[in-house]
Design a binder for these strands. Structure first.
Length: 105
DNA sequence: GCGGGCCTTCATT
DNA sequence: AATGAAGGCCCGC
């Protein structure tokens, strides 16, 4: 059952980040408030234009879903795509951030 | 809208 | 070390 991955007490998982993860997280963190970027954008930024999927994978299991602005990352088509914490909230968050940006303007 | 392909990580053999 | 599986996708038709 590889689907049911029980979190071992310790030492089973990678405690550190891989270079790929670091690059992705860094790029995502550089996204300004109220701005939305695409997975492609991040992929190109990290030097892997075709790894948009891998980018999504990192964000999917990213260590801090609430800290990493994964909700600012959307699909190239303009759709929300998916979100670790719920797509519904993602849309709201984007809208909310846009509002905040407008307020600060 | 559908189908195929790209890239990375993790678990198992 | 190698293989299989999955993931929040992208591109072309």
């Amino acid at each position: 059952m590889q689907f049911v991955r029980l979190e071992k007490d310790k030492g089973s998982k990678q405690l550190g980040f891989t270079e790929f993860e670091k690059k992705v997280l860094r790029c995502v963190l550089t996204i300004p408030l109220g701005e939305t970027r695409t997975y492609k954008w991040v992929a190109e930024k990290i030097g892997r234009p075709k790894s948009a999927r891998a980018v999504g994978n990192v964000l999917n299991k990213n260590p801090f879903p609430l800290i990493i602005p994964c909700h600012r990352v959307i699909k190239s088509s303009g759709s929300i795509g998916g979100f670790s914490c719920g797509k519904a909230n993602k849309k709201k968050l984007i809208n909310l951030e846009k509002k905040i940006k407008n307020m600060l303007k």
